[in-house]
Design a protein around this nucleic acid. Structure first.
Lengths: 205, 205
DNA sequence: GCGCATATTGACCAAGCGGTTAATACATCG
DNA sequence: CGATGTATTAACCGCTTGGTCAATATGCGC
C-alpha cells in the first residue's frame, strides 16, 4: 500500500523537519536514515528517494541549522544604541540569553563543528559561518577602536571581534555542560566590567 | 596460536595507548573495538577481555584525556609574575599557544564534551574538569578583583575566571575550524588591550 | 613434566546500518 | 477507462559493529 503522493518540495521539507528533530534529540550520531523515516512516518526507502545519500541529508540539514540558529540577528533596539561599547555589551547579552534559553540548536551546531574538524566540506561551511558571525561584531569593534585609540596599540577590529565571538562560544561550552552551576549574570557582569565599565559608569537597576 | 602473556596493567596500558591514537586520528566515532585491537595488533576479543565494554574503554580513555591534555599547568615562571593581570595574560597566552601547537588532544576533549551533552556520567566528569580549570584561573582573578576594586562593582572572581576560560575555549573553537585564517597574535593583543593594557603600558618587543 | 589459572585467539551471533530494487499504489492526462 | 510517469513501500543485500564463547597457547607452582 504505497501511500499518496506529495510534491517534491513538501516531502523534502517534511523529511528535513524530521531530521532536525531527530538530530536535536539524538545528535548527529543518532541521525540515521531509518530514524528520520520513522519520525516522519514513512519508509526509509523514501528518504533515499528524496535524498540519495545520508551525506546529502546531513548536508541539507546543515543548511537549516546555519540559517536557523547561528545567524546573528541585530534587532533595531540594539542597532540604535549610540556608543559602540554599549552596543557590543547588549549584543553579547542577547546572544548569551539566546543560548541559555534554547541550548539544543547550538549544541547541534557544535556537533557539526566537530564533524567539520575531520570533514573538509563541512569545515568550510562552518568556517564561513563563523566568519559571518565575526563580521557582524567587527562593525562594532571597528567603531570602538576608532573612537578610543587610547588602549594599547595594535588592537585590531578583527582581533576584538574574534574575542567577542570567543566569549559567546566559550560561554556556550561552559553553560551547556553545566547549566545549573553556570551563573550567566556573574559572567555578563564580569564581561561588562572588563569592557571598561568604569569609564561609562553604567549600572543596571 | 594465542600469543604470549602480559600482566594485566601492561596490556591495559597498551590498549589504552592504541585507543588514544585511534581517537586522535578518527575521533570517538571511529573508536571501534576492532580498530583499537588492530592498532594494538591483537584480537578484538582480547580488548573485550580487558575492558568488558566499549563503554568502559571510552570511559577509561576519558581519564587519560583529562589527565593528559586539559589539566592547567602553571609553570614557575608564570607563578612568580607579581601583578595578577600580567600573570593572567601570560597564562592565557600559554594556553592558546598550547592549543595552537597541538590541537588534536583538545579536539578530542571537545568530542567528549559533545558526548557529555547527552550522557550524564560523562557530563559530570567534563563539568568537574572545567570546574578545576576555572578554579586555577580563579586564584588569579580573585587577586585582580581585590587589588583593583575600581572597575564596575559586582564583578566576582568566579565571573572573571569563567570569562578567562571562555576566551581559551572560544579561541580553540575558532582556531581549530580555520587555523590558517585565525590570527592568534591579533587575538592575544586584543585580549591584552581589553585587559587594561593602558594601565600597565606593557608592550612586547 | 603436570596440572592449573590466566591470556589470547578466531569463529560466531544478532542487530543495525546505508543503500538498491522490484513491485505497487497513485495522480494525471488522454 | 486505460496508459504513463511518479511516489512509495517492503524486502533484500552486504557490511560493520559490539559482544560471547569454546578452544588453545602460555607461564608458573609443584
Amino acid at each position: 500500500m504505497p501511500g499518496r503522493k506529495a510534491p517534491e518540495a513538501i516531502r523534502r521539507e517534511q523529511i528535513l523537519k524530521a531530521a532536525y528533530e531527530v538530530a536535536l534529540r539524538q545528535g548527529l550520531d543518532g541521525l540515521t536514515v531509518r530514524a528520520v523515516a520513522a519520525r516522519a512516518k514513512l519508509s526509509h526507502g523514501l528518504v533515499h528517494f528524496h535524498f540519495k545519500d545520508r551525506a546529502q541529508l546531513v548536508s541539507a540539514l546543515l543548511d537549516r541549522v546555519l540559517a536557523t540558529t547561528t545567524a546573528l540577528q541585530v534587532p533595531a533596539v540594539i542597532a540604535h544604541i549610540p556608543r559602540a561599547e554599549d552596543r557590543l555589551r547588549a549584543l553579547l547579552r542577547q546572544e548569551m540569553d539566546r543560548l541559555a534559553k534554547e541550548p539544543r540548536p547550538i549544541r547541534l551546531f557544535f556537533e557539526y563543528w566537530a564533524l567539520g574538524t575531520r570533514h573538509a566540506p563541512t569545515r568550510a561551511r562552518i568556517s564561513a559561518e563563523l566568519d559571518r558571525y565575526r563580521a557582524a561584531f567587527r562593525t562594532i569593534t571597528a567603531e570602538m577602536v576608532q573612537t578610543e585609540p587610547a588602549r594599547s596599540a595594535g588592537v585590531t577590529p578583527e582581533g576584538l571581534a574574534a574575542v567577542a565571538v570567543s566569549l559567546v562560544n566559550g560561554c556556550a561550552v561552559q553553560a551547556m555542560i553545566d547549566p545549573a552551576h553556570f551563573e550567566i549574570e556573574q559572567y555578563l557582569t564580569a564581561v561588562e566590567g572588563i569592557l571598561g565599565g568604569a569609564r561609562s559608569g553604567r549600572r543596571g537597576a
